[in-house]
Amino acid sequence: MSFEYHEPTSIADAVALGARFGEAGRFLAGGTDLIIQMRRGRVAPRHVLSLHRVTGLDRIEVDGAVRLGALVTHRAIEQCPHFQGPLGALVEGAEVIGGHQIRNVATVGGNIVNASPAADVVPVLLALNATVTCLGPDGERTLPLGGFLSGPGQTARRPGELLTSIRFDRLPPRSATAFLKAGRRKAMEIAVVCVAVRLTLDAARERCQEARIALGAVAPTTMRAGAAERALEGQPLTDEILRRAGRLAAGECAPIDDVRASARYRRLLVETLVPRALRRCLDRIGRAA
């Protein structure tokens, strides 16, 4: 493993280096995915562009919307006071990644760019309709997260482009989120299935106004369960409706058999965890009332 190591000190310098090296360069954030891939020989960048000295990318800004700098760590998400309420699924997703040492360095931007279908925080962001902003030689562009993720390890990021921030709206009243993960152990675990749900009730608190369901580890990318969402919207959230959403989600995902689990079990988990996460949201909205 041999490469040149660069330490740009500003976003502009980082983007300039990214443009210069293109496919031969890789940005290094927390390194918890990149280093492993380099050690296993899966990637061999000739230039590693460390972002450690770039300032301003590790901020969490909350006003009408929430903006996460790409270098915000999972630990920072876990500890952010703005995420303790209706946005709690962010904390639930962040706190089950790796162990403490991993979460202290692993970044949310890195997690998105790594584009693992089993990423834990990505489904939460997808359920929040997040957008991502990239900066490259041709300037800045903002894409919906769902469109950004294109396959396992693949995104719409262009060579040399730097993901700088993630943005999503704060939730309207009568909303909650929930995240659930199934795996063989309780830490240091890659999800067998993970589910993130965002739910908003109507003014009468009787029917679903808006539902977003995102699934991890059951398709080539983190995916939205659109049919399940549509089956909920406008409906009274009876247990039967919730379970129907679970069955629909299980039907529309596309899991594979691998060493971690069978496709059949993954569907069973989706069918179970989707209504469970929705019930958790209902419970949270109820308690907040």
Partner: peptide, 22 residues
């Protein structure tokens, strides 16, 4: 886990020893 004579999980990511939380 062996499949066709090859180990499918030759790493500590997929060989699951319990952690303190388990």
């Amino acid at each position: 886990v062996y499949e066709n004579g090859r180990v499918l999980n030759p790493n500590l990511t997929d060989y699951k020893m319990p952690t303190s939380l388990d």
